[in-house]
Amino acid sequence: MRGSRITAVGHYQPARVLTNEDLAGMVDTSDEWIRSRVGIRTRHIAGPEEPVDELAAHAAAKALAAAGTAPGEVDLVMVATSTAIDRSPNMAARVAARLGIPGPAAIDVNVVCAGFTHALASADHTLRAGAATRVLVIGADKMSEIADWTDRTTCVLLGDGAGAAVVEACAEGEEPGIGPVEWGSVPEMGNAVRIEGTPPRFAQEGQSVYRWATTRLPAIARRTCERSGVEPADLAAVVLHQANLRIIEPLAQKIGAVNAVVARDVVDSGNTSAASIPLALSKLVERGEITTGDPVLLFGFGGNLSYAGQVVRCP
Rank of each mutant, 00 (worst) to 15 (best):
H118E: 08
R216W: 04
V137A: 15
P89R: 06
A308S: 15
A171E: 13
I6E: 11
I107G: 02
E168A: 05
D141E: 11
E196T: 15
G161L: 10
D22I: 10
I101W: 00
P199D: 06
H44P: 00
A15T: 14
G25L: 10
T154V: 03
L120W: 09
E188D: 14
P232Q: 05
L297R: 13
H118K: 07
Q207A: 12
A66P: 12
E249N: 11
Q13C: 14
T126H: 09
V109R: 07
A15F: 11
I178C: 06
L18A: 04
V9R: 09
H11F: 06
P218C: 09
F301A: 10
D151Q: 01
A59T: 13
A233W: 01
T69F: 08
D151R: 02
A132H: 04
D294R: 12
A8E: 03
T153F: 01
R201V: 10
S185Q: 09
G184K: 02
S208Y: 00
W183G: 10
V186R: 05
D160F: 01
G3Q: 09
A66Q: 12
G197E: 10
A203L: 02
P199S: 09
A97T: 05
S144T: 07
V77C: 06
P218E: 08
L235K: 00
R152Y: 05
R98A: 08
T7F: 13
A233C: 04
C155T: 06
A252M: 06
A129K: 03
D141L: 14
V77L: 03
E172Q: 06
V239W: 08
H118G: 00
R201F: 06
V38C: 13
A114F: 05
A162W: 01
D22L: 09
A237M: 02
A15P: 11
I247R: 00
R37Y: 13
P199Y: 05
A96L: 01
A263C: 03
A257R: 07
P295L: 03
D124R: 15
S269P: 00
I45E: 05
V166C: 04
R264M: 12
E54D: 14
G163A: 09
V112K: 00
N244S: 10
N304T: 12
A243Q: 03
I34A: 03
D22E: 09
S30P: 15
M26C: 08
N304M: 11
R264S: 12
P89K: 11
A243E: 01
I247G: 01
A121C: 08
L157E: 10
E196R: 15
S228V: 01
I290Y: 07
T42L: 02
A275E: 01
A252T: 08
L297S: 15
Y307T: 12
K142S: 07
M26T: 13
A59H: 11
E182A: 05
A263I: 11
G47Q: 03
V193Y: 00
V311I: 12
A147Q: 05
A80V: 02
D31M: 02
P48L: 06
T7E: 11
M1D: 14
C113P: 11
R128C: 11
R223K: 11
R5S: 13
A93T: 07
A106F: 04
P278N: 10
A93F: 03
A252I: 08
R201P: 11
